[in-house]
Design a protein around this nucleic acid. Structure first.
Lengths: 215, 215
DNA sequence: GTCTATAACTTGATAGAC
DNA sequence: GTCTATCAAGTTATAGAC
């Protein structure tokens, strides 16, 4: 094991350059995650970061610029915090996919359904705002999706030839995001588990060896 | 056909009791849908409804009470606006599920990806607020999910016995919500279509007749 | 039930000294 | 780069006449 610190703690650690700018991004990241962009005031961020107004606006002329920086940080954190630890715990490519999903399940349970996917949270709130923000969100999804796609590409002939690896990766992402949304809304893990369970059954039907991967 | 007015127009029409209270709910509904709850100011709602501050606070002491009313309205509109029209166009229970999904696809395309699922929009922004709001969101999801489940129950022996109809309905909802989120973020319909396509393949594999439903 | 006026406060952002 | 002080506008919500 050795990686059971939780995504949040790890993210805070890895992101933690203790510069003013770094502290601002980290504070904004946490607050946007728990409260959303609109609900979080600049004053909240200032207080949490222990920084004064003048410094914030020196680095980030607009509140939205801070959001762009947060999205960039998430993108940079994706592999070290989400992907690599999961890949280190599990080596089978298909199980790696489910190990990543397990990470989000743990986040839901550990936070009592207050934290889901940080990007999903921002996606619906902010994707109709400026196009840089929308692009930052899409970039994050794309990074996640490509990591999953790589897993499906690595399995080679274990998946039937006709299986579109790219579309399957997209499907995993939609299942995860939809599952997180429902779990948070119901405050129950069952909707998330139902999605993952169906996904597992579906994928096991796409395998060339009919005996493999049946639960 | 005969129902090609678009969800928004129809909703406005059906919801349209022209009372002050009704106009407030309708204005709030539209603005929460396009801008979210926090971004929408009470002043915005007042202006759109053509109502004065005193009247709003006579009916809805808090802004959040208006959101609860909006969620109740969505719940009341679900069958007449979303479910019934789809059921009227298509009679096969399984195709009815995909007809409902098609409705959301149309909404995405017609609005240039600005409108997705109204409930999903509010879910991630508001589900950590008051518990009445969260419950209103969960109730809406539950209504949708049960309509889908009913379809899967009606097919009887066409689906294998071992298929858990309830979980499958949840899976359809997660696929829809995840697909809407990605489509809006990428501003492309492909992620939504990928999800629906995978769902269709999966369900066709759960059918007892192997020749049925293959694309 | 509806009107106007406004209270009480918070918002994002700036100015200018250091 | 960082500080304090502050602006102008916007926020939710209320008071009291009609």
């Amino acid at each position: 094991m050795g990686d059971e610190k939780g995504l949040e703690a790890k993210a805070g650690e890895l992101a933690g350059d203790h510069s003013t700018k770094g502290r601002l991004i980290e504070a904004a990241r946490e607050l946007f995650l728990t409260q959303g962009f609109e609900k979080t005031s600049v004053k909240d961020i200032l207080k949490q970061a222990g920084v004064n107004s003048g410094s914030l606006y020196y680095f980030f002329p607009k509140k939205e610029d801070l959001l762009v920086a947060v999205l960039d940080e998430y993108k940079a954190l994706l592999w070290p915090v989400v992907i690599e630890p999961a890949f280190q715990r599990v080596s089978d490519p298909i199980e790696r996919v489910f190990e990543i999903l397990k990470g989000y399940r743990q986040m839901l349970e550990m936070t009592g359904f207050t934290h889901g996917c940080p990007i999903g949270n921002l996606a619906l709130e902010m994707c109709t705002r400026s196009d840089v923000v929308r692009q930052g969100i899409a970039d994050n999804f794309e990074g996640w999706r490509l990591a999953i796609r790589r897993c499906f590409e690595e399995v080679g002939a274990r998946l039937h030839d006709y299986v579109d690896r790219d579309k399957l990766a997209t499907f995993v992402l939609t299942t995860m995001e939809g599952g997180v949304m429902l779990a948070r809304s119901y405050r129950r893990i069952e909707p998330f588990d139902a999605g993952v369970d169906m996904l597992r059954r579906y994928i096991s039907q796409l395998l060339t060896d009919p005996d493999e991967g049946v639960a």
